[in-house]
Write a protein that binds this DNA or RNA. Structure first.
Lengths: 182, 182, 182, 182
DNA sequence: CTCTAATCGAGACGGTACGTCGCGTCTTACG
DNA sequence: CGTAAGACGCGACGTACCGTCTCGATTAGAG
């Protein structure tokens, strides 16, 4: 057997409850205004138990966001190479639209900076799946810029143009990617 | 006379001291870790006096950042129209390089989100000076994206590629702007 | 003027409230079971304000006990020299009896050790008023022993023989002092 | 058979380990600062196991102190009646001196109150061995006072006059007992 | 050149959240 | 299948910072 021993079932349960609790609370108020007590109340675990799992609420957010970003990228990045850029961006926009409130929360508050970092990191870790970019663009920065633009557009969509359809947004992103790939 | 009456000399002095103090402190630690007590100590004014001028430290940061962004845009945006895009971006990069530590502070910590907002706002207020963009790009978002990319590149420069010269960075930005203006 | 500047009136007021609050709470439950939150609630001051005045509840107890011990000794020690030993001990017992619940609290719980220390200290500070003792008794310990016996008797009275009158207890103490002064 | 069934040998072993552990730890820090985790670590038993034997650390201390007080009294009280008061007190002081650090620990910290109680209790249980006392002294209190003085003197010895010899201390106690027996 | 009002220094205070520590119970995974 | 290992609930602690409040002391700038 080469599987790593799974942590105690109670631990997995508690962490899951915490992630869910944060996710719910994020629908109501920005991350900075959420206290650890809020989270533990919502998750129905003892306040002090929180610290047995995460050193602070940022760590919990990272955990949560990592999961969500993973899900998003797992869903869309593969299509980027195999199918078409459009299929990929459309799928992404649709997924974000379905989880609108969560993504709004992730991209809105002061935590947006962290999320960007996580997003870029994950993309860079899968960099072999990333399309070729323009020769004048240092490769180290291309992921940063692509992710940056993507998140900028998504943030703008969720925040200021919620009436646009996923197709429209995907179209914008698509054109952008086309520009750099020319 | 249509000039607004200048506030009391003491007021101007105090606010200036506060802005300077924050600027100095930002060289040492991220914005979130700076307390109002830190700022008032550094500025050598009474803690309570801070609140007579700003409701919270975010307000002070906005004040400071607004000034700095104004200075940057005053310097570069005009050249964009009158001279060349390259002259403009180069001037911008050089100015950022000269005030490197301040801009690093502005773009690094959790306050980066706020700074982005301010940057976009100011650019939009001067939108008549902004170049025409691609027809498929909704005009409301073009400033957001352009600013986003600009700040992404600057952040990357200051954070991860400090060895690049201002010319190189200006070149990258330049090419990007050219893409969208085609 | 040789008077030391009194602290801020608010400070004196707050400390007095805290002492009173502890005194009241001691009538209900032993010192160890009283929390700082109990005290600050009872005193109607903010929890954190407590720490601006005392590092912990032990310090507050010392303050309170010091006052009470002072009062007791001011009342009784002078009579020891000027009048008779009996007048002195009787006054002491009566005073303790009048403040029975407080003294019961001071002498009962785990804080009794501290109280003993304070009592001995104060007596030693007024040592010139202390009667001559037996030659075979090292002077450094005479106060300790006298105070010890006194407190032991008082503790026994309050705890196990509450029906005895102040006169009876004073008589016992009196005889004891007579023994050592012979 | 009228002997009470001895508990399981393992139980006796565990309890002994716990008592020893507490005894060792008391040499390092006062009782209040010792945690149950400290004790179980020192005793090399599981934390949870502690509670199978004692409800809290106070109970363990009582157990330990009871043993030690028993040992002391078994050693000295018999001599009080059969031989001389001096032989008795001297033996007591010597025994305390030999177990100096333990007794210092028992008599120093906030636990001193408990120890006093235990001491008096045990003495009262052997009251038939106690010498006759003065007629004006209610018999119920004589043990309390005698024990009180004894412990006061011992505490003073260990804490503030460690240079005195056991003989000197025994002499003081001796004279005291003589006073009351006159 | 005063006089009046705004500004500032100082710091006690109420309050929120934090993160830590220790206790004692309860569960789980392992031998 | 019983037990150590340890997750957990709980409650108190002491800290850091916030923002409000009062009270004097100082100082600007208008008359």
């Amino acid at each position: 057997m080469n599987t790593v021993t799974q942590p105690d079932r109670r631990i997995r349960k508690t962490r899951k409850a915490l992630r869910l609790a944060l996710q719910h609370l994020l629908l109501d108020k920005p991350f900075e205004q959420i206290t650890i007590r809020d989270i533990s109340n919502e998750a129905d675990i003892a306040y002090t138990t929180f610290f047995r799992h995460y050193p602070d609420k940022e760590a919990l957010l990272s955990d949560l966001a990592d999961d969500e970003i993973s899900a998003l990228l797992d869903l869309t990045l593969p299509m980027f190479s195999t199918e078409s850029s459009h299929a990929s961006t459309l799928t992404m926009c649709e997924h974000v639209h379905e989880n609108e409130r969560l993504w709004r929360a992730l991209l809105a508050g002061g935590a947006a900076g962290n999320i960007r970092q996580l997003f870029v990191s994950q993309v860079e870790m899968r960099f072999d799946q990333w399309p070729t970019v323009m020769e004048w663009l240092p490769p180290e920065i291309s992921a940063t810029i692509m992710c940056g633009v993507t998140l900028d557009v998504l943030t703008w969509w969720l925040g200021k143009a919620p009436d646009k359809t996923a197709e429209e947004i995907a179209g914008i992103l698509d054109r952008f990617f086309a520009l750099t790939a020319s």
